[in-house]
Design a protein around this nucleic acid. Structure first.
Lengths: 287, 287
DNA sequence: GTAATAGTGTCTTTCAGACAGTATAGG
DNA sequence: CCTATACTGTCTGAAAGACACTATTAC
């Protein structure tokens, strides 16, 4: 979504009408933002989850989020605020996080309290320190996403969350957050195809094999090391060399890898297409 | 966005808490849906606009839309209802329309009445009869979108609307609808690359040249007829032959074109990539 | 030394785009 | 007859994937 530089001009002949307008006359629909914040820890994809301190779904795991402050902030600001509040991420770290709108979820029965429309955001973060809880979260932690590859062992037990299985049970997550998370993973998988956002999971300086590990974890399948290397270097603006190398080789030996930083491109031309499942010629499902 | 099959289970120990919950305690944020409905008339892209019958922005052109009915409908249902209501499109025609969520717009000052979050939808429709106004629209009409190619003459005067110029003036459209429309056009341009949705602008049976005209209008540039033809036929599931041909050749002569219908694919593999602007190696802007 | 890995060279296949050419229609 | 168009054939270059190979490091 583009920025929203909207400054509505209120015409003089509408002033009077506006003065008499009563906002509370309208049926109450609440608006929240929820954030699916993804990061990479020990080469496994993790999502930030909080434990709900109060009802509804008290004690359940949920995506961090909360109500939009009416008249005070726009949706992106609300998402950034909630992400900071509920996790204790400091503002400096917040600047390294990519935040984009994912979509809105508005079933009238998704929240037992009332009709709540949630605007979901997707965040890509580098490996951050463990969050401290805040806001109405009893606790917050990076939780491994059991991707298509399965496995994942970490800070908290892995989720039985759908890689992207449509119609899967919301399961352990509160509200419809399992659906939101599945949509977030789908978006992440396709976003890294045509943008350099995979670098957002890494430190400012990284090696091509580290970048490849990010892609392999997000897509859940191994990539050919040699072809990946050449491909990344061939896309203009994807990465740029720092001239340096790592000080050590890999844990199991091998030469030192060269260090790169993110280049200036916002989109990848040509794109880094995910290996097609040739078993599925009908095309992947959409929307 | 995926479907939202969410049936939250209210736990017994939360019943009591819920009974005491007062929805009106929360600050009022209203939720609307707005629809950017696109269609193709006389080979020009048109968008459905209404003239606002009441304040704010009375008399201005706007995207059709309205408030979500709290507790009664989800966002997609609200969008379909508003589209039908404000335009008089009958339910049968509604089924031929592709409707997908575009994004949400929630600046606190985008509506002078109060903080209104609008969930925008994008619709692809075949050439439909002229709408009759309804709801709070004084009138409704298909309005030509002055694309990157400029020109366009039709039912109403063409819009000075940005092809996708970021930061352009909202201009004649109410609220931030010029921004929404620009985002809708961007989405449409990329959506036809990797889905067969361009066929949604055509009758159930169409020719390859007709399909090409759709792409040329949406992308705003001519395509190579021969290569386009071969490409479309080579993508599995994009179109399937009916075995018939048109009964007449083109208005300026030429053989009769074969008729096809939409195939079963939901995504295009390989994709029909838009000719890259090689002048812009930095990559197109994002989000 | 042994094993694993970084990075490069090369071949094959696929696909996009340029261009030519043929057949079929309207005027 | 002339022109515009549908559709096909062919060539070239770009790019993806498979494989082989060298060099460098940990242990």
């Amino acid at each position: 979504m583009a920025a929203q530089p909207d400054l509505p001009l209120v015409r003089a002949d509408e002033r009077e009408w506006l003065a008499a307008y009563d906002p509370r006359a309208f049926a109450p629909v609440a608006v929240t933002v929820d954030i699916a914040a993804l990061t990479m820890r020990h080469n496994r994809l993790h999502v930030l989850l909080v434990e709900r301190a109060g009802p509804p779904y008290q004690g359940c795991l949920a995506l961090p989020g909360g109500f939009v402050r009416a008249g005070e902030e726009d949706l992106g600001q609300a998402a950034a605020r909630e992400l900071a509040e509920e996790t204790g991420v400091d503002p400096a770290a917040l600047r390294r996080i990519h935040l984009e709108q994912l979509g809105s979820y508005g079933s009238p029965i998704r929240d037992p309290r009332m009709h709540v429309v949630s605007v979901a955001y997707l965040a890509f973060a580098p490996d951050l320190p463990d969050p401290r809880a805040g806001g109405d979260a009893a606790s917050a932690a990076w939780t491994p996403v059991a991707g298509p590859r399965g496995g994942g062992s970490g800070d908290r037990s892995p989720l039985p969350v759908p890689g992207s299985i449509p119609g899967s049970i919301p399961g352990v997550l509160a509200f419809d957050h399992a659906v939101i998370l599945a949509d977030a993973l789908d978006r992440a998988r396709s976003k890294v195809e045509y943008t350099p956002l995979a670098t957002a999971f890494l430190e400012p300086e990284f090696t091509i094999p580290e970048l490849r590990a990010v892609y392999e974890e997000i897509w859940g399948e191994p990539l050919h090391a040699g072809n990946f290397h050449r491909k990344v270097l061939s896309v203009p603006g994807f990465v740029e060399s720092t001239g340096r190398t790592t000080t050590r080789g890999g844990s199991k030996g091998g030469p030192r890898a060269r260090l790169y930083r993110s280049g200036g491109a916002t989109t990848l031309h040509p794109a880094l297409l995910r290996p097609a499942d040739r078993d599925d010629p009908s095309g992947r499902s959409l929307d």
